[in-house]
Simulated assay, not measured.
Amino acid sequence: MATVRLSDVQFDEDVYLSYLQEDRTDRNAYIASGVAVTSNELQARANGEGGLTSIPFWKDLDASSENNSSDDPTQKATPDKIGTGKMAARKIFVNNGWQAANLVSSLIGNEDPMRQIASRTSAYWEQRFAARVQAITLGLFNQNDAGSGDMIFDASTEDGANATADNKWSFDGFVDARATMGESADNLALLAVHPDTLTQMIKQEKIEFVTDSQTGVRIPFYNDYRVVEDKKLPVIAGTTSGFRYVSVLYRQGVIGYGEGSPRRPVAIEFDESAGNGAGIETLWERKEWLMHPEGYKFTDASVADLSPTIAEFETAANWSREFERENVGIAFFVHN
């Protein structure tokens, strides 16, 4: 248990200076860029019963054959049929609490640690949401890497310190990764890269910055793909030396999500006897999320508790692809 105490607060007893909030450097761009979108179906299921939910889907018609027409009455055509399948998603039940001693507010004047904590919880949950998107992405990569590898183009070398231009980020490699989507490649629109990779791209003068007219934020683009800079993308140590980076191409909306309604999403807890009677205040927040990549089944093969952890979302055995490759809007480019 962590409690904000007087020793954690820096202030001048005579002239109190306003506190400065240190914003976190990692930002959630997945919702803003459209990778993760609210799904009406998942929203409804997020408020339903149980922790694991099945999502049925229609399979496409088989377009591999046809019948040649005939005037022979004895020739009978056999009709085809349409099939169904099921995706499966696991609900996420998470919470966190933040605590402060009442005496802190009394001694430092107008500043209130709990008010400051409450002003930052929204940003905190955005980052936890992004961490789940990142874990799902890594889980799909690990599952495909251990299997067919048909979603991955790998140009890297295990001797990263001696990588050539062919092993590093390149337009050719980008096109080859895109090509793993086949004729559905046009659906890809977003590109997530590690900051080290973005540095390579800027040095190659391949990044175009577009200023958002409403926010003034400069958004990077690469060949009309919006670029998301993400320091949590996989960085794999080379067997011999150096590192291998995993960059990800996404279709907009490939990850759907819904948000459930915990019985008490926000609660304030008071312990009046703590602090030898001065009192302790705790803010609790609870979230119920249902997040799922289109085309996959969460197998639940390796989950210890009620909700999958970040590490369990990253586990290859917990994922099974149910859609044909071209219908899954994610592609991976591995490079040095």
Score class of each variant (00 low, 15 high):
N68V: 09
K59G: 06
L191A: 06
I255D: 11
E208K: 09
A2L: 14
G50V: 03
D112A: 06
A155Q: 15
V104S: 01
S320G: 02
R244S: 02
N162M: 01
Q99L: 04
A44D: 05
E13A: 06
N162P: 00
T215M: 08
T25R: 08
T180L: 00
G48M: 02
F153I: 07
E322Y: 04
G85M: 02
E22P: 08
G34H: 15
D172N: 13
V246T: 02
L283Y: 12
W319C: 05
A274Y: 11
S320I: 01
D8N: 15
E66W: 12
S106P: 00
I108M: 08
Y30Q: 13
Q143I: 08
P220N: 12
A185T: 07
S33C: 11
F141Q: 04
Q75R: 12
W319R: 01
G216F: 11
W169M: 12
D159G: 01
S70C: 01
G182I: 01
Q99M: 08
L306R: 12
H194V: 00
R244E: 15
G258M: 15
N144W: 05
A274T: 15
N327E: 14
V254Q: 01
S69R: 04
R263E: 07
F141V: 04
T315E: 15
V217Y: 00
Y245M: 05
L138M: 09
G258T: 14
A237F: 05
A304G: 05
E322P: 06
G51C: 03
N95P: 01
L42H: 01
R178K: 10
N68D: 14
T180Y: 00
Y245C: 02
L233H: 08
E259R: 07
S39C: 07
M201L: 13
Y250S: 05
A192E: 09
N223Y: 13
A44M: 12
G97D: 15
S184T: 04
L107H: 07
Q200W: 06
A267G: 10
L140D: 00
W319K: 01
D14L: 13
E158C: 00
H194R: 04
A123Y: 08
E183A: 03
V193S: 04
S7A: 12
F333S: 01
L290W: 03
G238V: 13
L290G: 00
A131D: 06
N40T: 05
L107A: 11
P220C: 11
A311D: 15
R27M: 07
P113H: 08
W289T: 04
K297N: 00
T25Y: 10
P308N: 09
G275M: 11
N110A: 05
M151H: 14
S69W: 09
P73R: 02
S7E: 15
I92Q: 14
M291I: 15
W289Q: 06
A278S: 13
K59S: 07
P262Q: 02
A118E: 15
R132P: 01
V266E: 14
G295A: 04
L198W: 05
N110H: 11
E324T: 12
G160D: 09
V9R: 10
Q10E: 13
I280D: 14
M201W: 12
W125P: 02
H194D: 11
